[in-house]
Design a protein around this nucleic acid. Structure first.
Lengths: 319, 319
DNA sequence: CTGTATTAATAGTAATTAACTATCATCACG
DNA sequence: CGTGATGATAGTTAATTACTATTAATACAG
């Protein structure tokens, strides 16, 4: 049984005439004769009674085939309609994961931009660690992620969004406030507040200032498990210690500004590269591109936007 | 879009693996790759995400195709099941027309026989005139008819069932009762009770005794419009006149036997040939045969059953 | 009754489509 | 880095489908 045969059955039943039915189907009459006889032989049932000179009439079993065939073609049309509706990459939800240290600062600018540029594509958002997001992305549990580490997974693609320099945040009363800029040596002598393990930003700060990594042995860094950058910011404001923040996390209120001071690095400032990543096989590339464009359009203050040309291709180590 | 393609979609979705899905479908793996890509291109939508080394996952639009495809195959299976059920000629109702002067005498014997030989084939019965039944048979409004005139319609086939001789029915007090048999001359002198126009039996009696046809000019025949043979029988019993009956209509009760007498014809007895007819194109020949066998098996007393060999082919005049 | 027109079936051929074998590209895993 | 597994691709063969031409059967007109 084929859909073509069923289509012919519908046409013959409708026209009650093989010749006219053939015209409707844009085929020659013998095509219908052969196709319908083939189906009749397959089913072992005569579907039409060909009355010599008179017209063709449908038999009771033919009637039943007809009903089912009509419903089959409703479903076929439904498939085509839904496919046409799905053809737009920017339709249907996109599951987007964003790491903890980016989401609160990027999303307020990204979401309105997406609502404008892709109103038919609701974002299903998830905040999590890079490691978890990468795993979920691989498994297809999310469709894209925005992270701040190089994405080297084979099977994933990534594009850089922006470069985010770090700055030093000091309590307003801190002695270092007197300096215009902070040297690495200055910083390494302070009590540094850090995010808990798992946060990539913690690792990035530790990598930039290896000397901080002396916690166990009398420690200059203080790890705050289960915290967020916002929590750390409040602790700085209350004078507990100093910290390093990505610049997107440094746009605070006037009230906060009275309690905290920002200082640039004297030496080459550390920074992190924020990228969007997705499965190489993900079938909606334009959806990714829309998110990328929205991220580039979002007002993030201090960051250096990356041009499309600066593509960071994942799976880099091996050629 | 073809049913084969949809079958492959179901298999790949079920197995999440092109190779295994191909095995399930008893085809080679490239067949699936090509077929599914063809469908994806036709729909303009990616149905499966082929994840490099990992397994295959289905996309949201693929999911929707899957659901529709599953329902399509339910309907396809339904078609096959119903076709299998319809394959038996002796299943499903048979619309049988029988003329007024046969039905009351044949059906009491035919129906139980049919219930025995074809219990899955209910008979939808209609009593009517030969002319009306023939028209309905041609139009496909009934499937077969039992009549007593030669069926000459091209497009129809017929087989003789039995030969039904006529007999004379007289009121018990009638002078002719004294005779052992009735001559045509005797009969033509009597007041003959006849069915109304339209009944073929009326015409057959008039044809056998042309002298009766003098109604207008002082009439020896009395036409009873809208009556049945039973009504005529009662009128004979009440002494209104004599009549001629087919022998199947002469099996009456003892009470009736006290009021009416049957006499054979002296000369070659007139008779009528009862046949079953159907459209040449009717697709259930075994259903017709079952009715024919049941009619031959029915106990009709006096008739001469026709053997299958004595086929009366319709549309006879032209070779 | 005979020729003509109509309609579906059949035969034979051409075109299209589907499937197979062999091979390749990609990626996961020791 | 090889090795094994997986899906894609290429080229060929087989099967199916559709077409043209013709036939058979019937209805209809003269």
């Amino acid at each position: 049984m084929t859909l073509t045969e069923l289509k012919y059955v519908l046409a013959v039943a409708r026209e009650r005439h093989f010749g006219r039915a053939a015209e409707c189907c844009f085929v020659a009459q013998p095509t219908l004769s052969v196709a319908i006889r083939k189906l009749e032989e397959e089913l072992g049932v005569v579907l039409f009674e060909r009355g010599g000179g008179g017209d063709v009439s449908i038999t009771p079993p033919g009637e039943r085939v007809l009903e089912a065939a009509a419903r089959i073609f409703e479903l076929v049309d439904g498939i085509k309609d839904q496919a046409a509706a799905s053809r737009d990459d920017l339709a249907g939800p996109l599951r987007l994961g964003v790491i903890y240290t980016i989401a609160p600062y990027l999303l307020p600018g990204l979401i309105p931009e997406m609502n404008r540029s892709a109103p038919q594509m609701p974002l299903l958002l998830e905040e999590n660690y890079t490691r978890v997001l990468t795993e979920k992305l691989r498994k297809g549990e999310i469709d894209a992620m925005i992270v701040a580490t190089p994405v080297e997974d084979p099977g994933l693609l990534a594009l850089a969004l922006y470069d985010e320099p770090f700055q030093v945040a000091l309590p307003a009363a801190h002695p270092l406030c007197k300096k215009k800029s902070i040297s690495n040596a200055d910083l390494e002598a302070e009590t540094m507040l850090l995010l808990g393990t798992g946060h990539c930003f913690r690792d990035q700060v530790l990598q930039a200032f290896p000397a901080l990594n002396r916690t166990a042995s009398g420690g200059l860094a203080k790890t705050l498990e289960g915290s967020s950058l916002e929590t750390i910011r409040y602790m700085v404001a209350s004078g507990v210690g100093v910290t390093v923040l990505p610049c997107t996390a440094t746009r605070w209120s006037k009230a906060d500004a009275a309690l905290m001071v920002l200082r640039p690095f004297r030496e080459a400032p550390p920074s992190r590269l924020v990228s969007i990543a997705w499965r190489k096989s993900y079938p909606r590339p334009r959806a990714i591109e829309a998110v990328r464009q929205a991220a580039l359009a979002a007002d993030l203050g201090c960051v250096k936007k990356r041009l499309p040309a600066l593509v960071q291709r994942a799976g880099g180590t091996r050629k």
